[in-house]
Design a protein around this nucleic acid. Sequence first.
DNA 1: TTGTACGCGTTATCAT
DNA 2: ATGATAACGCGTACAA
Lengths: 335, 335
Amino acid sequence: MGITIKDIAKQAGVSYSTVSKALRNSPLVKEPTKKKIIRIAEQLGYQPNIVARSLVQKKSYTVGVVWPTIERVAPSKLITIINEQLEEHSYTTLLSINKLESAIKTFNRLQVDAILVFGENKDEIDKSKHINSTVPILYYGIKEDSVYPTIDVNRRLAIKLAVDYLFKIGHRNIAFFGDLSETESLQKQKYLGYKEAMEERNLSINNQLIIPTNGLELYDGYLAAKSFFSNKKIPATAIISGSYDLTRGILRATTELKVQIPEKISLISYDNIQQFENIEIQPTTVGVPINRIAKRITETLLEIISSEELNNSIILDPELSLFDSCKENTEESQV
Amino acid sequence: MGITIKDIAKQAGVSYSTVSKALRNSPLVKEPTKKKIIRIAEQLGYQPNIVARSLVQKKSYTVGVVWPTIERVAPSKLITIINEQLEEHSYTTLLSINKLESAIKTFNRLQVDAILVFGENKDEIDKSKHINSTVPILYYGIKEDSVYPTIDVNRRLAIKLAVDYLFKIGHRNIAFFGDLSETESLQKQKYLGYKEAMEERNLSINNQLIIPTNGLELYDGYLAAKSFFSNKKIPATAIISGSYDLTRGILRATTELKVQIPEKISLISYDNIQQFENIEIQPTTVGVPINRIAKRITETLLEIISSEELNNSIILDPELSLFDSCKENTEESQV
DNA sequence: TTGTACGCGTTATCAT
DNA sequence: ATGATAACGCGTACAA
């Protein structure tokens, strides 16, 4: 068994309530006594029993994160940042990799102060609806529009921003690299943004411009790009890439094939992370910076915890971060 | 606030201690009363308060997993399996992505029953040593030999097995693909196994045979393999690949270059996962199957929890899984 | 300034 | 078969 405040009290020759006050740094305890108690606590390696505390306080200073798809890397950076930020507010983050329903139950039993759910689909969420969670829940990145309190990123708008910018600097033939398979509904939003924006500008879309990468790994981007550039005449003056890793692959291909960026072709990458380190060229990106997402999620969680009330869905708007992978297009191909 | 047993008691017109017994399915409660109580509990959506329970029982049926490197995919499959297995024993798994020291503190405060630490290096572990954890700790995959209770995999022996097998079927020129950078100490163990085994057999090693992939992604294996096979004369009759993704890359390269496996060259891959799905050829692998690792870890955790005593380090021995990527070598190059 | 007593939700022990 | 009550470790209102 661990050390309790009673053990400390005995050692210090005071009552255990005094110890409790001292450790919580209450002004109701004299400095010398406080110092002494704290010293003894450290000596004994005292760890406050959160269990007992949260029982009496009805607050555990703990946030539960539901993380059923641990095997996907995508949002792991995000959760790392959220964890750090919550820690600064002296909250502890606990992850569960169970299915949504069972994770929610667990966190309710554990009496966490709030639950953050990552990237679930609507079906799964609906299944968990009958559980009346005492603990407030916040969803991130769910795959369909939703009536549940949600924070998400406007991926569609992101790609539209990219198209608009490229249009503004003279590009008319704009290609899109992305995984278009049915399962990747996040990717699909990006594709829709591309299509919409192109149509709005009356730009033609053809199969030469839509490049399915058939996967989201670096290698997939690399292969797609190699085949793309093997065309006699490259069918576009600009590329929009649907994800970080794809972009890395595209850049490896352009380096290898000595396709100059941005001289030969412009490039914009979808990205939240903004850490294209060790890479030949810093690409122009579009997306919601991960720090902004994290900050907003943290704030919302703290809000939910203190007010018990959740204002509904928040959709974060993306921004364009200009670097040197884009250049004006002055070719005759302009209409 | 949530529903408590007292709420149920009021509804059912019994005392709350009867409710407690009924919900724990005690034989001391008459069937009809029990049924009634359970029904009401379900109606109200009652969730037992683990906090209170673990306070009195001094047991939380919870295992804490320290997972500081969430951004690396490697052991995520493993943890998924362990989670499932612990669940079958009605234990809940909770992850922390904090630094080791702070995670251990957290789990102690939370009064979990055991802590499982993933893939930390010795420095980090030493730093946490001064914390006298009330909760028993089990380490997995730490990067140096250790005095702490540990379960790990014998990577060195795995690669030796591979070399030995290839030797037995007539290969003398055996190449090794792996990331040899200083930071990858797990990879290094594999390289050492390769070197040792080759030396034991008096097989010569030269730079043509040791292929640093400079990364562990599919793409890295692909590139390394392409350059490897561009040699006029391929310098080996067999390849040992240091990891799953590298192997996938190598296979893509051989397919592309029409290098027949195993006709032209034999291949053995290091692997725990054994799920080379969607791949052209099922390679022969060597390693400890992930299910065996998971099972052993789960067992050890449960043991530790019940006995409070930990028998020291367990090193799991790898096995060879023969598939069709190897073939006897009958060339003259045999000594 | 310090100590006493009660309550948080649950389980376990003892009476009834 | 059921109910009353103590205990788990802590925080806090109130008494000293």
